[in-house]
Design a protein around this nucleic acid. Structure first.
Lengths: 215, 215
DNA sequence: AAATAAATGTGATATAATTCACATTATATT
DNA sequence: AATATAATGTGAATTATATCACATTTATTT
């Protein structure tokens, strides 16, 4: 449950849990499409998604988002046109909340609206940090980061199955697909991870953290 | 005047115009310092500042901000510790608004709070776009972008004086100081800009826009 | 005005990482 | 099961850009 939703009373909660407007998505399905008109706030109840945006040359994965979380808040509030896309990378449950309804919620519950502000602040900071990190680190460091993000934040286990291809990981950390392949092999060779297919197991987390900080 | 402040009534406005808590800063002065404790919302009344953050290897300029604008909103609301630094790059006037006061404002004026949300959404989107742009474009394109930003958004003239050094521009667009120097010379040689010292004049904007899109 | 420090210009060299090209597995699809 | 399609592995070559090294110019400070 997101922090913002915690502050709601039961009436509002039932509102948000929105059984009627809940939609199931399969892996690979498009949830939000950049350029499309939208009048809904999107809330990810379960699953994992990628946020991606059309850059000057290619589509770029901005970040991965795990439920529970709002999706496309900036796009929904700031604009009628979606400013980026969201695509599911696992099965996912999504609630679509009417924008008018959402605004009423904000009006009626100032704590809720404060929490939304809080979440937006956090997102902006994270976006800034991610960007500084990616541009300053080189390939090895960025790949170490992604592996650690999967382990520590997304799957909360040192043993997991990658939900995206190496090409997509490359896209996410501004690197070529080939560099991802080579670096993963390198980590494997050095006994830092074990990987077979899309399954990854972290064998030496300290090394990985070190590479994240140093490489 | 920022959009958020427009929605305020006179009582609130006088609050924000905050003649008592207004501080003058000179070029190079630190307005917000990363890691420092803060209980103030900072509002930039006039002047130009740079937002910079400590990355894994070096301090990095995130973006330039022109008055009028709030500064450090995400840091002020999300945290008690400043998450990035703000340094003035021209003379500037800044208001410090007590956090408690600001929250009262949010409470009492839902339109205002909605506008703050709006601003935060916009900032997040901009952060995402900037990042995708910078990583996808190469040096020439990014430098063209900076020049266009100065001309179109900051000074609103094709003839201006750079408020930062080439080293800082390099830092802003993730490039070396030398590459900035070489590229500016190149643009000069090709008749796209004229530049002497820190003065820049855009001679061929179409070319610059093309380089921004293509290079 | 001299002296010192900071900013800029520019060639030569080094390097990380991309691109290309193709082999090899996996994974879908018929 | 057979075939087509997508994903991955890996060497060799290329490339954009960084780094180094120093000259020169511009600002600051004494």
């Amino acid at each position: 449950m997101s922090k913002a939703a915690e502050t709601l009373n039961q009436e509002h909660l039932s509102f948000l849990s929105c059984n009627k407007a809940m939609v199931q998505f399969g892996k690979g399905d498009s949830i939000i499409k950049q350029g499309m008109f939208s009048t809904n706030i999107v809330y990810l109840r379960s699953g994992l998604v990628k946020i991606h945006i059309t850059g000057p040359y290619q589509e770029q994965i901005v970040r991965l988002v795990k439920a529970p979380s709002y999706l496309g808040l900036p796009t929904s509030i700031g604009d009628k046109i979606n400013q980026y896309s969201v695509t599911s990378i696992s099965d996912a449950e999504v609630c679509f909340i009417d924008m008018v309804t959402f605004r009423q919620l904000l009006k009626g519950n100032e704590l809720f609206s404060y929490e939304i502000i809080h979440e937006l602040c956090h997102n902006e900071l994270e976006a800034i940090r991610r960007c500084a990190n990616r541009t300053q680190k080189q390939v090895r460091g960025n790949i170490a980061d992604v592996i650690l993000e999967f382990a520590d934040h997304i799957y909360e286990s040192d043993h997991f199955t990658l939900p995206i291809s190496q090409a997509e990981i490359g896209n996410l950390v501004d690197t070529s697909r080939e560099s991802i392949s080579r670096t993963l092999s390198e980590f494997h060779r050095d006994g830092i991870i074990r990987f077979t297919g899309k399954k990854i197991e972290i064998l030496n987390k300290k090394s990985l953290v070190l590479i994240s900080q140093t490489g």
